[in-house]
């Protein structure tokens, strides 16, 4: 246990909408051991310097999900982020509330929309009344079936992913990474009887709004990997229903397109994604693009050694199917 301490500078976002015209940053300085968690530092500020500093916290061991916030612009749990590496990288520690959620005060944000998205994916077993649960005993579930949940049971609903997600910021219709990872957890649950219905519904309920940026996976403190589970949901949705949505048609078209010539035909992809009608709808945008980049009208040539691309496709097709 290190006894040496470092001088740590914290710039903490402060804002009480009832009293403050605008947010401000308040500086606090403390001497702390480098392995001190950010939460411990903030609680010391509350106890020793400024009891008005406001944040949510409870377990201090990364299991209750209360203390997600931005630490040097990354959405993290304060309780499991040590100050040492932050100071070494940035020289100070900037503490801000999570993004994509209205600030109630200081680091406390309104989470009602986050919870509503979670509720909307129907996060409970949906049963078929003709297939009752086994009387007086558990449903059998093999270790392999448990494995299919991947890391989703570790989710603590801290909303760090929701904070990090640009799709949440761009579109209120996007359920967010946590809700989709939770949906995945029910889709692979052998006890659930509504897999197909869940997959069909989510196609129009925001699944395809995910931008595949993987910031959620980077932010997740429990290694739930929401973006990978969203990818799995997309594959399962296509397998269940085919390309019924622009999002799934785009994915299918993209795949076919590259397989044919080894290059993307953007014109063709728009047609595949949106249909002829959609193509006309995009005409204004299309004409502007053509003016800037006339070559997109040309049919792309077939690349050399297309057989190598085919090999990649074949190996991917033989890859283990998603659960």
């Amino acid at each position: 246990m290190a006894n040496s301490t470092v001088r740590a500078t914290f710039d903490v976002y402060r804002y009480d909408p009832a009293h403050d015209a605008a947010p401000r940053y308040q500086r606090y300085e403390l001497d702390l051991a480098p392995h001190t968690p950010v939460l411990t530092a903030l609680l010391r500020i509350r106890a020793e310097i400024d009891p008005t500093l406001t944040l949510r916290y409870s377990c201090r061991s990364a299991i209750c999900g209360s203390c997600a916030m931005q630490v040097n612009s990354k959405s993290r749990l304060a309780c499991e982020t040590q100050i040492g590496p932050e100071l070494a990288r940035d020289g100070r520690i900037v503490i801000e509330p999570m993004r994509n959620q209205k600030v109630l005060r200081d680091l406390v944000v309104e989470q009602e929309p986050f919870w509503r998205n979670y509720d909307k994916i129907r996060p409970h077993l949906i049963l078929d009344p003709t297939k009752p649960m086994p009387e007086g005993r558990e449903n059998p579930m093999t270790p392999e079936q448990v494995e299919r949940f991947r890391e989703t049971p570790r989710c603590i609903a801290c909303a760090a992913c929701y904070s990090a997600c640009p799709a949440v910021e761009a579109d209120p219709g996007f359920p967010g990474p946590m809700a989709l990872a939770k949906l995945y957890r029910f889709v692979v649950d052998p006890r659930d009887q509504a897999h197909q219905d869940r997959l069909v519904r989510i196609q129009t309920d925001g699944l395809w709004l995910c931008l595949r940026c993987h910031l959620c996976t980077e932010a997740c403190p429990k290694d739930v990997r929401p973006s990978e589970r969203i990818r799995d949901l997309k594959e399962m949705a296509i397998a269940a229903q085919g390309g019924t949505e622009p999002g799934s048609r785009h994915a299918i078209g993209f795949k076919e397109n590259i397989r044919e010539r080894g290059l993307l035909s953007e014109m063709k992809l728009v047609r595949q994604t949106s249909g002829i009608g959609g193509l006309l709808g995009e005409a204004g945008q299309g004409l502007r693009m053509v003016r800037k980049k006339p070559e997109i009208l040309k049919r792309p040539h077939r690349i050399e050694h297309l057989e190598e691309v085919e090999k990649i496709y074949e190996s991917l097709d033989h890859r283990e199917a998603p659960p």
Binding site: D16, P17, A18, H19, R46, P51, T52, T54, L55, L104, R105, D106, V108
Partner: peptide, 9 residues
Amino acid sequence: VDRSRVYNM
């Protein structure tokens, strides 16, 4: 000492 009504911890 905190006089705010909002989330007064």
